[in-house]
Each structure stands twice: as C-alpha cells, then as structure tokens.
Design a protein around this nucleic acid. Sequence first.
DNA 1: GTGTATGCAAAACTTTTGCACTCTA
DNA 2: TAGAGTGCAAAAGTTTTGCATACAC
Lengths: 198, 198
Amino acid sequence: MGLHAPGAALLCWECFRARENFDTAARFLRMMTQPLKTRIDDHPAVSQAELNEARSLFSRHIKSVGLKHTTQRDTILETFLGTRDHLSTDQLLQLVRQRDARIGLTTVYRTLKLLRDCGLASEVAFHDGVVRYEHQHKRRSHHHMVCTRCGASAEFFSAEVDKVEKEIGRRFRYAISRHTFQIYGICEDCREQERAAQ
Amino acid sequence: MGLHAPGAALLCWECFRARENFDTAARFLRMMTQPLKTRIDDHPAVSQAELNEARSLFSRHIKSVGLKHTTQRDTILETFLGTRDHLSTDQLLQLVRQRDARIGLTTVYRTLKLLRDCGLASEVAFHDGVVRYEHQHKRRSHHHMVCTRCGASAEFFSAEVDKVEKEIGRRFRYAISRHTFQIYGICEDCREQERAAQ
DNA sequence: GTGTATGCAAAACTTTTGCACTCTA
DNA sequence: TAGAGTGCAAAAGTTTTGCATACAC
C-alpha cells in the first residue's frame, strides 16, 4: 500500500473523513492499526541441498546469457531463498543489507529480474501498487487467498485449477508459462473486529 | 509496459544487446514492432437499457456515500461503458477527452475508483506496471489468458474455477469479494513469427 | 585487459495530493 | 450557500537508467 502522505495517519477521524469517503477512511484506519500478517503456506525451510541446487541453476542461467557471477548476486539469492513471505524489492533490500550493507537497491532490482527469468522467483501482484516476489524453486503449483483488510495471504492448492490451465492453453493454442490466481476477500478475524467495533 | 527511455527504441541491436540480456532485448524489439492486439471476449455492446441501469446504480452509490452527481462523472461512466478493452487510466482519459477535452486526469483516476467501489469496474493487473480497468456491469465471471509477447488477451469461462473460489472461501472462512485469474503464455501467432525469424 | 557489474544519483513514469476556483443540491 | 468536485501543478512513490568506478573471467 503506497502511503503517499505519512502524516495523514495523524489526522483525526473527522478531518480524514472530510477528505475521503467513509469507506476509504475506515479502511485506512483499520489498516493503520493492524500489523501486516504474514503468509501461510506449506513451504518448509530451504535445505542446504536445495540451496546448492538453486545456486547451480542460477549459475547456469547466468552463464548461458553471457553474464557474470558476483558475490552480490549470490548474497541476494541466498537471502531470497531464506525468506517465506511475498517480498517487495525494498523489503528484500533490507534483509540483504543485514548480510552486506553496501549492496544497492538497483542491484536487487536487477537480480530479482534475473531470478524471475530463470524461474527461481515469480512476481505476485496483490493490487496495491508494489510488485512482490516469492521464491519458486521446487514449489508445487499454488494460488493465493488474500485479505483486503489486513493483507494476510494464505496459499492453497487445486488440481482443478491446474487442469483448467492446461485445457485453456490447448484451446487457445498458447504455450503456457505461468498463471496467477488470487481470490480476494475479508478474513474471519477482520470480520469479527468489524462486528465488535459496531 | 512503461517505456522509460523512448529513445532506446532507436538504438541499434548491438548497442541494445550490450546493455540488456538477449531475452530482454529481443522481447523489447518484438514489442516495438507489433501493435497491441485487442481483447477477445463475448461481450456485446452495451444497450441503452443497460447504460441507464448502470447510470442509476452509479447515482445510488454516489448518493449513499454522500457525494454529488456531476457531468464529468457521467461522461466518464458513459465512455467507460462504451469500451471493450482493458483500459489504463491514461487510455480512458484519451477517450474521455474526445467527448470533453477539459476533463482532467485526476478526475478520471478518482472516478474509476468510485466505479470500482460500486462494482461497475474492476481492476486487472497484467504485470506490466499499469493498473487496467474493465467494466463489470452484468458480466459473467470470467478469467484471462494473456500473451506475454504481444499483449493479446482472451477471456474464458470456467465453472470449475468459480466452484474452487467458493470452496476455498469456505475453507479459509473468508467473505469473498472477487478474484483474478490470469494464465500467461505465448500465443500461436507470436510463436510462428518466432519460428519464421529463426 | 576487456567487458560486465555495481552503486549512486538522477530521470522516468504512475498515482496521489494541495489548492484555488467552480459547481451541485 | 455550504460543502463537494474539478483541474492544474507539484509531490510522492516505485522502477529504470546514465555513468564513473570496481570487479570477474
């Protein structure tokens, strides 16, 4: 959620309401008073073996397109694989800098695109103005259920959806590379808070 | 596709390749030499009756949140309903200005959000950095098949996907509002052009 | 040594906001 | 006529680019 005027959070309800419609104001206040929940998934921590495999996949890709191996790219790959959330580039930068404070934002942007190109990362759009990435190495096909109030996201799996994907590709004669399936709604916790607040 | 340096298209192949990896360069050149294809759907032109219905729905929404009816909002609604594509705010602005040249970008942004809030428009993200809108009035639930080379998009329908949506909502106890399901791939035409170019 | 990678600062681009003025109800 | 809407210009926020320097092969 791009927050263009951070000071706005300090406005009182009436002033805020005066500028925005009721819904927007209410949504914003709720957002400001709740921490962003983390991702729910079935994804275990990445093992040493998997890390090595990912590293060699990355190396191969880098060589195949005539680029070079660097310590920064390695650090970024490792940090990325160590996460479980859907990360914005900036969030990843913060984590990367805990390992090497001199790595720049641009490098993270460029490396994430490389990771995307070789299939280790995939972009997820949650309709809030920022591109997020999740790692994709050896993960099974999955989809997202997103709460539009608190930002919680849960993953789910569905053989039907995977079947539909193949079928539609065949029907339209597309060579399919990937899909994104997000369901948006309001989670139980948020609905309860809402009920309690009334 | 946000094109940050329009001059880049004038670079010769070697210079461009020197700066980007092969894939990026190739994709960019293809993109620059092909017109964006339009949307394929089952959506007939909006009838006068539907237009009136949409207008009254919009009016009701506007009143219910304490806002006011204006000619600009009317013009934008009508223009929007007259389209069939997935429009960026800027594209819609161009169309709107054919009817009234004095309407500003900001108003279009604000009005699209109102239309989204009352369910007449929905946001579609095709992973290219711009938010697009499509109109949603009386449309049946549908999903998108997108070509990542030429930008063509086709709609498809699937009872299974709709069933999965309900089922997942129940399982996670979410109150579902909407979903987005996009399948990405390369269409037959682009694959043929690619084969021919080799 | 040649050419790619990096990091900074600046630019590009989309979206939001502040404000003076206009219009709706 | 009070309060909301509009359009412009400026700001905010994300992503990309230019360039001098550092590094990999």
